[in-house]
């Protein structure tokens, strides 16, 4: 079942001679449990695609459907609720709140959604435990390493019953070992049924995805074929 559907989505900024077409009739479907990477050079529309998929921005034309609900025409409140309940974001620089502990940061989306603080906190600690960070749940962001902060950010993005995980250059300035760890965590979330979209210019990160979509000048120009089995590379004769 598809969790995210973009149908003919376009985005235009400005008008007249200053008009910039950031996206041009992009269609993309991401199923439950599927991880899709979007690759493209800077200015190709990757980040715009992600903010539109996350309902943080409205398309100029086209349709966005998340978990079966059409976003266009939804009230602001309904959109905000959808964002809080169903969508998790991982940003390049993690965006953790410095004044909150790791567990509080993770629990925040639930609390904002009206979940009682105690229940939210327990869910936060549980999400941290799944990412191997239980013992750091009382630590503040500046007491954590870069890799730990990113794990907290991923825990926050998948806490509760989130269906869609959106990540913009999720390994940020992390080294390749931590970048790999981040992608393993996102894969794990997807195996539990979350649909994931990772935007990156890094082919090594993108190669963790089930499918890689290539964006150029605001258009989807290509995508990789469905995965072959893991045996294909070490077949005899190679």
């Amino acid at each position: 079942m598809s969790v995210l559907e973009l149908n003919g989505v376009s985005k235009v900024y400005g008008d007249g001679p200053a008009e910039v077409r950031a996206l041009h009739e992009v269609s993309l479907t991401v199923d439950e449990g599927e991880l899709v990477a979007v690759m493209g050079p800077s200015g190709s529309g990757k980040s715009t695609l992600l903010t539109i998929a996350g309902t943080l921005e409205a398309p100029s034309a086209g349709e966005v459907v998340i978990a079966g609900a059409a976003v266009t025409g939804m009230s602001r409140n309904d959109r905000a609720r959808l964002r809080r309940r169903s969508i998790g974001y991982v940003f390049q620089n993690f965006n953790l709140l410095a004044g909150l502990t790791a567990a509080e940061n993770v629990a925040l989306p639930l609390e904002l959604d009206g979940v009682p603080a105690k229940v939210a906190r327990e869910a936060g600690v549980q999400a941290l435990e799944e990412l191997g960070l239980r013992e750091r749940s009382g630590s503040f962001p500046d007491e954590l390493s870069g890799g730990e902060r990113q794990r907290v950010a991923i825990a926050r993005a998948v806490v509760g019953d989130r269906r869609l995980l959106l990540a913009d250059e999720p390994s940020g300035a992390l080294d390749s070992a931590n970048g790999e760890a981040v992608m393993r965590l996102i894969r794990t979330a997807c195996r539990r049924g979350v649909a994931g979209v990772v935007v990156t210019h890094d082919a090594q990160l993108a190669s963790w995805a089930d499918r890689v979509v290539f964006l150029r000048d605001g258009r989807v120009v290509d995508q990789t074929a469905p995965a072959a089995g893991p045996e294909s590379l070490i077949a005899p004769g190679r």
Binding site: M39, R184, R187, A203, Q204, A206, S207, W208, A209, V212, F214, D222, Q223, T224, A225, A227, A228, P230, S232, L233, I234
Partner: peptide, 15 residues
Amino acid sequence: RYLVQLMQEWTRLKE
């Protein structure tokens, strides 16, 4: 596309 597909296969092996 070809190269990224190869990388996906290697990454899957590593996974």
